[in-house]
């Protein structure tokens, strides 16, 4: 932990105290997990605590031996957990919000009871929101992370982008990751014999599938889970001159060239025609694919289907 101020350090030391209220040994790994830090920092903090006290005769009775903390006496004081400050409650609620926990849920309400009297949880959720996917991902998130931690296979019900029916599949859930405003599951699909990425908000049901697995050592970086645009074919799209959102965020991996008449020519990588056809059609005539022919015909097919459904 780089450049910790004395104030931050004192906060950490005080937060560590209630974890030492039971005499005996505590594993440094567990303490590090509970405090969201690493074993070396916990060991250093315990060293500092062992010279702190009410006075010279009443110090914090703790020492570190190997990978354990040994508490050999009662704490002089402050052995009870302290309430969350408003800033701490804000941080925790923002983190839960980012994992799809509804601000009105009973969990958030009960965490609110731990906070200082000055806290107004409702006003917090009206001013700070980190929701990646508002609308309740919490259940899917919790179920998948439990299975991933335990190394248990999952049966998920999933509809890919563009699919109009959801299908069931069994996967080995490796990891959850959030990127560009969406949560994903990175998993091994025994059926496809390949690792696959599933958007969490397209998973409508999760249950244990009964199997177990060992996650691979050294997972590929989560952000690499999307296909590398450099390896994909490209479609050429001409955009009308005032077309909005011509960004690499909206069109991943695309390159853009503005022409003298104000129109923009883009080379857009695509993995399958379903996604790109829908993106082009949703521009309602402001985007025209000049090639390849398979993308042009996919766009026409999709538009005709949609017209038929109106």
């Amino acid at each position: 932990m780089a450049r910790t101020t004395p104030t931050e350090r004192a906060r950490r030391l005080l937060a560590l105290l209630p974890h030492l209220r039971e005499q005996g040994t505590h594993s440094l790994a567990r303490l590090a997990e509970a405090l969201g830090t690493d074993e070396a920092s916990v060991a250093a903090d315990l060293g500092t605590l062992s010279v702190c006290g009410v006075d010279d005769w009443d110090l914090v009775a703790v020492y570190v031996e190997d990978d354990e903390a040994v508490v050999f006496g009662e704490l002089p004081a402050l052995d009870r957990p302290v309430r969350l400050t408003a800033a701490e409650a804000r941080a925790l609620l923002a983190a839960l919000d980012a994992c799809g926990v509804d601000p009105d849920s009973p969990l958030v309400e009960r965490i609110g009871t731990l906070a200082s009297g000055a806290l107004d949880a409702a006003s917090l959720s009206r001013t700070v929101r980190a929701a990646i996917a508002p609308g309740g991902l919490a259940h899917t998130h919790a179920a998948l992370s439990a299975l991933a931690c335990a190394g248990h296979t999952a049966r998920i019900t999933y509809a890919s982008r563009g699919d109009d029916v959801a299908t069931e599949r069994v996967v080995e859930p490796w990891r959850l990751f959030a990127s560009r405003g969406a949560w994903y599951l990175q998993a091994w699909s025994p059926e496809a014999e390949a690792d696959r990425t599933y958007r969490l908000d397209r998973i409508t049901a999760v249950e244990p599938a009964g199997g177990t697995f060992t996650p691979p050592q050294g997972l590929p970086a989560a952000t690499d889970a999307a296909p590398d645009p450099a390896t994909l074919p490209r479609a050429v799209i001409v955009f009308a001159h005032d077309a909005p959102d011509l960004t690499a965020r909206e069109w991943p991996g695309a390159t853009f060239e503005r022409r003298a008449d104000g129109t923009v020519v883009a080379a857009v990588p695509f993995a399958g025609t379903a996604w790109i056809a829908r993106m082009v059609a949703s521009r309602l005539g402001d985007a025209v694919v000049t090639g390849p022919a398979e993308v042009r015909s996919a766009v026409v097919r999709l538009a005709l289907d949609e017209i038929a459904g109106l």
Partner: peptide, 30 residues
Amino acid sequence: LVRTAASAMLTDPSFPFVEDLRMALAKLTA
């Protein structure tokens, strides 16, 4: 959920409240 949310956000360089979250987690687990 608390554990996964905290461990995800503690390592997210774009999460603004890392130090407060660490303290909140320590108090909550206690």
